[in-house]
Amino acid sequence: MESGYQEQFERVKRYFERFKKINEGKQHNQSSPHHDDDVYAFFQNCYHLKDWVKNDKSCSKWSCVEAFIESNSNLRICADLCNSLKHLKLNDRTRSNKKPEFSGSNTSINIDEGFSQQTEVGISISYKIKTVDGDINAFDLAKKCVDIWEIYINSNKKTSAKS
Results as ranks from 00 to 15, higher is better:
K157D: 08
K158S: 11
L141H: 03
V121I: 15
S84H: 02
Q8A: 12
D80A: 04
N29L: 07
K157I: 14
N83F: 00
D135V: 12
M1G: 15
D80C: 02
Q118G: 05
S58N: 12
C46F: 01
C46P: 06
D51N: 13
K21M: 11
S160H: 09
Y5I: 06
E66L: 03
R14N: 12
W62D: 07
D80N: 05
F115M: 13
N72I: 06
E113M: 11
D140A: 13
M1N: 08
S71R: 01
L90V: 08
D80M: 01
N110E: 10
A79N: 07
K13P: 00
E17L: 12
R11Q: 09
S116L: 07
D51S: 11
D133K: 10
D112V: 15
N156P: 01
E2F: 08
K13V: 10
S96I: 09
F115E: 15
M1Q: 05
N137S: 10
S160N: 12
D56S: 08
E24F: 04
H28F: 14
S105V: 02
C82T: 10
P33N: 07
E17Y: 01
F16K: 12
I136K: 05
N29G: 13
A67G: 11
F68N: 02
F68H: 05
G114Q: 05
A41E: 08
F139P: 00
V132L: 12
Y47D: 15
K98E: 15
I77V: 14
D112L: 14
S58E: 14
T94I: 07
N23S: 06
T107I: 15
L49I: 06
Y127D: 05
G134I: 09
W149H: 04
S103Q: 07
K57R: 11
S60Q: 11
H34A: 11
S105C: 07
S126D: 13
S103Y: 10
I111R: 04
S124K: 11
T159F: 05
F102A: 06
Y40V: 14
I129R: 01
L81V: 08
Q27G: 12
R95V: 06
R93L: 11
D38L: 15
S103T: 04
A41M: 12
S163D: 11
Y152E: 04
Q118H: 12
I109W: 01
R11A: 13
P100Y: 02
F102D: 04
I125Q: 04
K61V: 11
I22R: 01
Y5L: 08
Q8G: 03
D38A: 14
R93E: 15
K143A: 09
S116E: 10
V121Y: 04
S60N: 10
Y15T: 08
S3L: 14
E150C: 00
E101R: 14
L90P: 03
F9E: 03
D133P: 03
E17T: 15
A41K: 12
D37E: 11
E10Y: 04
I69N: 00
K86H: 05
E101V: 14
C145Y: 01
R18P: 00
P100W: 02
N156K: 00
K144L: 10
S84Y: 02
R14M: 09
